[in-house]
């Protein structure tokens, strides 16, 4: 428990050989080459989107990567043609609620599935896993009926509530909590701590990388969620970004440049979130180290 890593001295990576050896420099160089090449191919679609979003429509089919004629007005057109601000707000609002709900309920359930012993535990867990295995398309209609009966169709609640309970999140956090040494909460228990305290003060902080990962996945997944809001809401003011983007890809004709401009704008918060979220991974490394 006394180990304390600071930013200047992060934990030794796997195979951490002495920093000055020739071997290490070679390894490092090779690592950079692989990373750079991979990163380049991964960047291409994004660059292509940005470049297309700055072209006039007539240039979409031209073979040029860069626009011959720059047209940043596309972005302005997107904002004026549809209530983009409302879509933004809705997407972020819904995704935040779902993230909060899902992380909380999943963490609680994962605690029950990983840190507690009770009869039927693994069988109930398999039931959870089982629902993941039934393709969502066939449960869509029964779901729709349940939600109709609850009078939730076409409300914010229908976008938030059902997504707050996730077998996926439970599974993910259970796996994370399994890696936390049992000795920690056992000793806390002997000291007389309640499960509620063990959960909040010992398990949750140690499961932080897992929580952050789940939060990021949940936020991204819901921010991009398409099928559910498409079916469940009708009114304009409830629409989220992916549904709003449809406006530019209608049966009447695809306005590729505007679609790309809107997609780029829709992606920006995700990129920001990801860059911020990464810091927590790094912190996660330190917290993970404490448990030794």
């Amino acid at each position: 428990m006394a180990l304390d890593f600071t930013d200047q001295q992060p934990p030794r990576p796997p195979g951490g050989v002495g920093p000055r050896s020739v071997n290490a420099i070679l390894w490092r160089g090779a690592g950079y080459v692989v990373l750079a090449l991979t990163a380049l191919t991964m960047m291409l679609p994004f660059l292509w989107m940005v470049s297309t979003s700055l072209k006039p429509l007539s240039e979409v089919q031209s073979g040029h990567f860069l626009p011959q004629e720059w047209r940043p007005e596309n972005y302005l057109e997107v904002i004026t043609k549809v209530p983009f601000g409302r879509y933004y707000f809705n997407s972020v609002f819904v995704a935040l609620w779902v993230t909060f709900g899902q992380v909380l309920t999943s963490a609680l359930a994962a605690y029950a599935f990983s840190r507690l012993r009770w009869a039927w535990r693994d069988r109930v867990f398999l039931l959870y896993l089982g629902t993941l295995m039934v393709p969502g398309l066939v449960t869509l209609i029964p779901n729709y009926w349940v939600l109709t009966e609850l009078r939730l169709i076409n409300t914010y609640t229908v976008l938030i509530l059902p997504a707050c309970f996730s077998a996926y999140g439970t599974f993910l956090l259970r796996q994370f909590m399994l890696t936390i040494p049992a000795s920690l909460d056992e000793s806390a228990e002997i000291d007389g701590a309640s499960h509620w305290c063990i959960f909040w003060d010992i398990v949750m902080p140690l499961a932080r990388p897992g929580l952050v990962v789940l939060a990021i996945f949940t936020f991204m997944g819901n921010y991009q969620s398409f099928f559910w809001p498409l079916v469940m809401v009708k009114d304009e003011y409830l629409r989220t970004l992916p549904i709003g983007l449809l406006f530019f890809d209608s049966s009447y004709g695809r306005e590729t440049t505007l679609l790309m401009a809107a997609s780029v704008m829709a992606m920006l918060p995700l990129i920001a979130l990801f860059v911020v979220g990464q810091r927590f991974f790094v912190r996660g490394i330190q917290l993970g180290a404490v448990k030794g």
Binding site: M42, A266, M267
Partner: peptide, 13 residues
């Protein structure tokens, strides 16, 4: 971040 870009890019695009 660069590696993650394809995952955040909208499917249709």
């Amino acid at each position: 971040t660069m590696f993650y870009l394809p995952t955040i890019t909208s499917g249709v695009a």
